[in-house]
Amino acid sequence: MAGSNFDIRQRISAVTDRVPAVRKHVPSLGIGDRLPFYRRLSGGQRFAYRLLLPALAAMTIVHFIPILWGLTISTMGVDLTYASHWYDAPFVGLDHFRYVLGIENFDDVLVSDTVVGERYRNALKNSVIFSVGTLVVTYVLGLTAALVLNQKFKGRFVARTLLLLPWVAPVVVSLYVWRMMFTQQGIINQTLLTIGLIDEPMFFLIGDNSMWALIFAHSWTQFPLVMIFLYAGLQSIPKQLYEAAAIDGAGRWGKFRYVTMPQLKPVSAVIVLLMLLWTMINYTAPFVLLGGAPPKQANVAILYIENYAFGNSQFGRGAAMSVVLFLIAMVMAMVYYRYLFDDETTGAGA
């Protein structure tokens, strides 16, 4: 910008030098004058910023302020007594973080054990299992469905609509149905009993099976999205690659392994990132399925944070837990992004 300003100035002075009377009307544009940010933008850029403004404003209110607020109170002793005037709460530095992570040898006068820390770490672990499990299940279901839809058969448009239903249906409704199906009198137990696979009803929503139930029910509501991504990916693979592979001697598996999967890599990368992050912060599925008192095997971080923070009115500590979860998600995303774009998306190879 500075260069072009200079050119303009030269041109202006070239004119004004010859016509001294005009000179005083030309605004001072001496070298070193810096225009305000907005003035330095071209018309198109200004227009672009004006268009972005509403979205930025909304994001500031919904995202940036709460994030900053969360970061702030994670360092403050906000509890019930300070709930209505949090800004008066004492500054406690990183105490909350030591506490919620259960780091030994911390000198804290408030609580002297690390039960919360242990539970929180367990909840973080559960969140990771939940995310990875959901990713695997949705990817397998989504890819299978996408491969089926990619075949030419009668009624595939109907099939596509039907396969989208779990995602289109209100998620709370879907999850409640799953919750009912998972009960002891639910259809799953009854079916298993009837066909004789089990002798007595299984517990799906408490105990060791609860994580599986959570992953499966959540995956059910999410796999159509993965399916649509992958279906679009499949549609964009050039047919000639399959023909070339057929001539090169690849059979069905060879084509899938060496053409389809590598060609799906870019879209898969996006799916992996989105599903991991979205699941990690998903609140609806664990809450609807497992409620306020989830079994420890399926007590994921987001649920634990909510129950702990609001159950014990320990808002500062809750904020600290959220910040940790936020950091984990951000670091994961960044590492993944770095890896993804260093490797370039067409990667894979034979």
Partner: peptide
């Protein structure tokens, strides 16, 4: 099937596998 015919084909737009190096492309068959 094409793979049982002992043929090689060159396509108009080459149909090289974009995710493979030239060596891998040539080696694939």
């Amino acid at each position: 099937r094409p793979k049982d015919r002992d043929i090689a084909m060159v396509f108009q737009n080459y149909a090289l596998y974009p995710h493979m190096t030239a060596r891998q492309n040539m080696e694939f068959g």
